[in-house]
Design a protein around this nucleic acid. Structure first.
Lengths: 344, 344
DNA sequence: GCATTCAATGACAGCGCTGTCAATAGCGAG
DNA sequence: CTCGCTATTGACAGCGCTGTCATTGAATGC
């Protein structure tokens, strides 16, 4: 649109800046700044003029400059291990919703359960000087932790409250969740417990649940008669084929299979439907997460609702509180609820 | 750690800056900058020294400053209508993966299918001066479009290639997808077609599929005998209860129900299981998306695979190409594939 | 041996904004 | 009528980095 070969001061159609707005409104730059940010430091009439000028010029503030100049950053780094699992999508949704309403933008990174990638992500996100960080850690390296500490900003570790957080934690106790399920199932009279899980190394929370489950069984004088963990991320298909394999390999048939999560368990239900195994009469199944799909099954799944949206919103709340100079609780357990269902 | 009440130059434990790294390495700031960014403009020995110094100081570059000073921004705005639907999670996953590998960070916004919120998000994201924007539009307002155009950066509209994009588009033709399913089903000999959809106003792509479906039926001298759209976002439960309602309200029983997507269709399958309706003998069902869950069902769903991950990676590719000064295709159709399944 | 070129490095300014402190004006109290 | 106070506005510097252009020294060619 504009002439492009102006010899020196060639401004190749720059976006309007605050000083242009200020000029248009006939005030100083700083007054325009204050007017647009609100806060009542500017006479209403002046503020009005500035707003009009800004709109007329289609002014979009440059937050890079704002944050660099010392204003608050309004970005929040978010690191999740995966998005394939709808669990994290739910958390992210809750988180984004709250942050957005408070004027913050999440900057996202997916670690794929890879601690090295996680570390790189932290480094990258930190280079944007976010106001805070939310992370669902997957076996954080020492270096990762050090980076976060050194950055000196609010950090919320989500999903898990079993470990002591670097700064703050919001989640549930997966250890307790495993125990709770074990107690429930013991109460229902099951005897031969099997476990079917996905790639166990990377999903520490699944491991914690299994640990809790085992511990509770142990305390009741029972133990797992079979424990199969498969390669690859959790999925319905993996649960389906996995259950087939588990049953084929069984020395004694289990009367209950505890799955690492609902995706897997739903797959298990499908296998039973296909193989003509009556649930829970011939075989009982239990999962974890309380996904909608599990509850929509013809036979609703016995599982534990993990309150994912609450984790997201609570994480946001904690962060925002800290931005406001408050001191929220160091560790917040959003709790879980056992859903009896009909599969166990 | 440091004295905090130094009268004037009180640096309250700032993060190390480039100039400190430079000083430590005994070179000028700009040389340090070039060394760390690579590019071979610095003697290898010097670069080495700088890297060592940076590591020793735990230097994390400040990209706000970098971007402000004219460097490339390395952030990409991403606007999606929802994350409840695993479809967008899949897209986001593909997108994030590619962007991350290329050193870009997505800044996320969720519009909840709300054009006003979408507009606000665009404004907010743009204020970070991203290098590009990826958006799954939900009925973009004129103002939104103007904002994007005026920003003068690469924009990829994803999901849909039916409309002419502002800048670039990556997705599939939902109109064609609807037609394709209709043709397939006509070929299978179905006669009494019903449609069951979710909140139709906001999900324009579902509308497009329905339009295509209807058009193709019309061309074959057929029409929908029933068309029910329910309130609320799509979900398995909505599909389940919706099918019950649809069948109850039917004057003549349909022999096939076309669902707005797989979530809904899976719900339909569950209803049939519960109600003892044999699929596809008594009633055939078809969906859209090709979600894993649909294919893991005891009776795999007849549907159309929408190639979501490809949309994400292609969107990233287009963006990155533009960042490199190339000119990728204006509109890219990643294509879809009909999955025959066993429910129709 | 001297001009020429290139690689390596540096000085300088400025990106667009906000924090700090200072200046001005307007007002009631004494 | 003057003083002190508050409300409003502005000047200034600088956040941390990179683009541009200039400088240096060494290597090259005739």
């Amino acid at each position: 649109m504009d002439n492009q070969d102006t010899p020196k001061p060639a401004p190749p159609e720059r976006r309007p800046t605050l000083s242009q707005v200020a000029a248009a409104a006939g005030v100083s730059e700083i007054t325009a700044s204050r007017a647009l940010r609100g806060g009542g430091l500017v006479a209403e009439a002046t503020a009005q003029k500035v707003r009009v000028a800004a709109r007329a010029l289609n002014y979009v503030p440059n937050r890079l400059a704002g944050a660099l100049a010392g204003g608050p950053s309004r970005q929040v780094g978010v690191i999740l291990p995966s998005l394939s699992n709808s669990v994290f999508a739910d958390v992210l949704k809750g988180l984004e919703d709250r942050l957005e309403d408070a004027g913050y933008q999440p900057v996202l990174g997916i670690s794929n359960y890879d601690p090295a990638r996680e570390e790189r992500l932290i480094q990258n996100l930190l280079s944007w000087r976010p106001a805070g960080v939310v992370i669902a850690p997957s076996d954080m390296t020492e270096a990762s932790r050090a980076l976060l500490v050194q950055a000196g900003l609010p950090v919320v570790e989500i999903m898990d409250v079993d470990a002591t957080p670097t700064d703050m934690a919001v989640g549930i106790s997966h250890l307790s969740a495993g125990r709770a399920m074990a107690h429930y199932l013991l109460g229902r009279g099951y005897k031969r417990f099997a476990y079917l899980g996905h790639e166990i190394d990377s999903d520490l929370r699944a491991v914690a649940r299994l640990d809790g489950f085992r511990a509770a069984l142990g305390e009741a004088g029972q133990s797992l008669c079979q424990c199969l963990t498969l390669e690859g991320p959790s999925s319905v298909n993996l649960g389906r084929s996995g259950l087939a394999r588990l049953l084929a390999e069984a020395d004694v048939a289990p009367d209950l299979v505890y799955f690492s999560n609902d995706d897997m368990a739903v797959g298990g239900v499908f296998h039973c439907m296909t193989a003509g195994i009556s649930v829970p009469r011939d075989l009982a199944l239990a999962g974890f997460n309380g996904l909608e799909i599990g509850q929509a099954l013809p036979v609703p799944l016995t599982t534990i609702a993990s309150n994912r949206a609450a984790i997201g919103t609570e994480a946001a709340r904690h962060l925002l509180a800290r931005f406001n100079g408050e001191t929220p609780s160091r560790s917040h357990d959003v709790g879980f609820a056992l859903i009896p269902g009909k599969t166990a």
